[in-house]
Amino acid sequence: MPALVRKDLWVRRGLLKLPGAQVPFWGFAPSPSAPPVLPGPVITATAGDVILVTLRNTELPVPVSLMFPGQTQVLTRRPATRWKPVSPRYEAGRMVSLTDALDPGTDDWIRYQFRAGKPGVYLYQSGTNPGVQVQMGLYGLIVVRPLGFERPSSPNYRTAYGARTGTGFDIEKLLVLGEVDTAMHARVAAGAEFNILDFAPEYWVINGRSYPDTDRPDYDATLPHQPLGSAVAAKTGQRILLRLVNAGFLNHTVTLGGLHGRVVAEDAFPLASSELDTTYEKTAVTLGAGQSVEVIVTPGHPGEHYLRARDYLRIVNVSSFPGGMMTRLLVTA
């Protein structure tokens, strides 16, 4: 039975911990008292479910919103209105938000609702002044499971996209790529002007963390705003599903630590069906901003590898190696 998946997201201020820097950021929190996290809380649903997200903002003095790239027919409402399709917002004839936004000090909340029609990983992010707000941290992930994902008798059991899509896996890792411009964060958080032409990030993150923090476990106590690690530990022969999503503004190339992987999905569209298998193998994949690429790596031998940005100027923290967009893949026999 399709379910209604409800999620509350509060826009809050927080402090990112990056190696050698503390950086103010804006993030989504599951409650007004919980810390905001980067990426935002993962919304999990089953294909066919309706996702209903309530967005609230009591901290930021700016309008905020949510947009859902890859979803169709998204509806929205506020306390005093009915559901209606989302639409851009204009001021003086010029678009100021890609979708309906919540103004500070007005309504208590704004809701968005849509049917999660097909499995996959998707971004949600602020659609309001995204050049600032997405960089400040207002992005998160939606994972939509195929029907029967948790039922061992189902052909879709533990697959990313269902039977015959070649997406069965033993280990799953969400890897959300991004970049952080600390000067921009400091200015925006202080309410100062920032010229977006000066955007020049110097930290490179996976799930909001830079190496070596990527190697720390999930929910590490020292990283309250960055709960997700990205290190992978596997045994030979296990199928590791790497769900790479680029939430940054730049394109990123990720190498699979020297191993080949099979690309099984792009932009949440599986590449194989019962009729046609268009999957292919790569040692590195390039993701444009907003794109996702899903790769299954099945190591045949033990080894200690580093998944990493192949732009080697992005495996540093500012200028020092090792750091940045890099995480460990440890394969044992």
């Binding site: 851009p88 678009m95 100021v96 050049g131 997405v134 960089q135 010229n195 977006i196 032409l197 503004f249």
Partner: peptide, 30 residues
């Protein structure tokens, strides 16, 4: 074409949706 409405088209390199620093601008249309 889906249901009636306005669907924005934009660069997901969000830092480029600007006119010399003034946003929204740049590679955005409807």
């Amino acid at each position: 074409a889906p249901e009636p409405g306005v669907y924005p088209l934009y660069s997901t390199n969000f830092h480029r949706n600007t006119n010399d620093g003034s946003s929204f601008g740049g590679m955005v249309t409807e």
